[in-house]
Design a protein around this nucleic acid. Structure first.
Lengths: 345, 345
DNA sequence: ACATTTTTGATTTACGTACATCAAAAATTC
DNA sequence: GAATTTTTGATGTACGTAAATCAAAAATGT
């Protein structure tokens, strides 16, 4: 059996109360006694039973998740994962509140952060918009001892405790290597379709993609970036025009969300198989397009992993514990039609 | 606050003892009373505090992990993950024992399963060897109410409760698509390097790879399979001979373990950049080769995920609970040099 | 209506830890 | 060496559930 506080008390020749004082570093223990107890802890290999401790403490973790509203499939999937986490709240002693905000709206986000602040949670997870006033709001939360984790989109310089998301430069580089190699057998330029260059993750992906294309495939021309605002209608129009303008187009890298317009344009022009298409985020739409061959590869960040990681980190930070950064790193998944995971319920 | 057993008792107008009888379906409760209690549970939305229950029960889960011995990097990594899980035993209430067996030795595995049986654990996880006597040994464990999960390599027809590993046919297909597309710009045949066709996962990978090559890239010739027994020296000799014999070789798919010989042969012949190489399992060796460009892509199964999933499933089965199969599905990771996760300590 | 069986209630102890209180002992100060 | 402060011990309660015991009540059979 694993040792308990009683065993430590017996081993160290002190009372239970003293062991408790040492374990929870309460005052009023001589350093000699403290040493005795700590030696007993070490030799017996005692580790506190966290479950029992939490039960006794009645500890719970009120968290607020601030997520963009709208019909972005990825974000809705993310929200679904947070809901799943809420369903697990009972056993994880968390109390999660979701606060929706308009997408890409720094001012609304600042207000949401302030509302979250008023609730006095132990931690806040937020899909950040890259703006100085948002960073300022995050700083205020941190100043009040509230842990803050950025989710999916980071906010460097805000003093956030952690970023639960992928390395988007690496994601862009991965897309670049795949694009270069998949289109190796033919000529023609590559187009890049973004949502908006005002969003940090899109900028990072472009940076990585461009770098690899320049380094490894210098012969292949890169067309100027097209910004589709993640709007299906606008994207379809732009991609349609692009395909007509560039009959020899070899590939399209879509680094933003809203792939519906892209897929529609490709399928309507009958170019879906000849143009190599690489997109981001596995959603019902991109999954279908991958299966049909319209999209050739999808890079994905696992929203479930991100949410669970964010919660783990928030808990640790709320308790003042260290986080093993390497363990919380979110991987970039590559999906081809052959390794698609089964659709979940 | 979430409701407790006391709240149910009050709501249902019965005593605590009766609530306990219903919750743990002990005998001696009229169906009318049982209904009252169950309605109270439903309306209050009571969920048992698993931590408190486990504390009260003093529940723990003795498990045995049977792993192949030898210097296979992947298997050593797997063992490391099991060790990590042992370190977490305290908080997870598990007691894990590792039983090493000689690799690919059905007889030794049967003996190990029998030894595991004698320990009367709540569950056993085993890297299976595909042989009828092994299946028989697994059946005996199951017959005694011991949960069995196959790890990495499955054993269909043994009645095992679950398989914690990847779909190797899909993995082979994924490799096929990558190979076909990566070598799209040039001619030449493709070679397949296996460990042994006696092992199930190798057979499955070959099946998937061959199928995709035949379906999608029928023009590309496939050379007869080379079996290197996962032995670095033999593999290097065979690959060296292969490269000399086939000067126009476009790609090599290495679907087994022991990539050291492969990498050595490629680098010594100076063909490392011209031959597209796809291998399995991310180990220090394959990672280095990926980084240097000798290997172009690595398909990986996350050993940590597999071990943690196996433990979750064993726990659930030991408690007679259902498993959400979709949630325990292990993904096939694709790594290029651009999306390599950082090396862990 | 009585005996018998079944069902229910009341109460207690336990799991391992947290936390509070009060008294006792030891160390410190003057 | 007495007064004071600091340190330690003893003890109890709590968290939410499990599990046991024994008595009381209700249902059942005859």
């Amino acid at each position: 059996m694993r040792p308990t506080v009683h065993d430590i008390a017996a081993k160290a020749g002190v009372s239970l109360a003293t062991v408790d004082r040492v374990l929870n570093n309460r005052p009023g223990v001589r350093s000699i006694t403290r040493d005795k107890v700590e030696r007993a802890i070490a030799t017996l290999g005692y580790v506190r039973d966290v479950a029992a401790a939490n039960l006794a403490k009645g500890r719970n973790y009120p968290f607020v998740f601030i997520l963009p509203a709208g019909d972005n499939s990825f974000m809705r999937g993310l929200e679904g994962e947070v809901s799943d986490a809420m369903a697990r709240s009972a056993s994880e002693r968390t109390q999660i509140t979701i606060l929706p905000v308009p997408a890409f709206d720094a001012q609304a986000l600042v207000q949401a952060l302030s509302e979250a602040h008023q609730r006095r949670p132990a931690g806040v997870a937020v899909v950040a918009v890259d703006a100085p006033e948002v960073a300022e709001a995050v700083k205020q939360l941190r100043g009040d001892g509230i842990a803050v984790v950025t989710l999916v989109s980071d906010l460097p310089g805000s003093g956030r405790d952690h970023f639960a998301g992928v390395d988007n430069i690496a994601a862009g580089r991965t897309a670049g290597t795949l694009m270069g190699r998949f289109t190796g057998g033919r000529g023609g330029p590559i187009a890049v379709l973004a949502g908006s260059m005002l969003v940090r993750d899109h900028r990072d992906r472009l940076e990585g993609f461009s770098a690899v294309m320049a380094e490894e495939f210098p012969a292949r021309p890169l067309l100027p970036v097209i910004e589709g605002q993640d709007d299906p209608v606008l994207v379809e129009k732009l991609v349609h025009a692009l395909i007509e303008r560039e009959p020899d187009l070899a590939g399209i890298y879509s680094l933003g969300a809203g792939n519906r317009g892209l897929v529609a344009a490709l399928e309507k022009t009958g170019k879906s198989t000849t143009i190599c298409t690489i997109a981001h985020e596995l959603t019902p739409h991109s999954r279908a397009a991958l299966r049909s061959g319209t999209i050739d590869a999808v890079l994905n960040q696992d929203a479930g992993h991100e949410v669970r990681s964010a919660i783990r980190v928030l808990k640790a930070k709320a308790d003042g514990l260290a986080v093993i950064e390497a363990q919380e790193r979110i991987r970039i998944d590559i999906f081809l039609k052959d390794n698609l995971p089964l659709e979940q319920a």
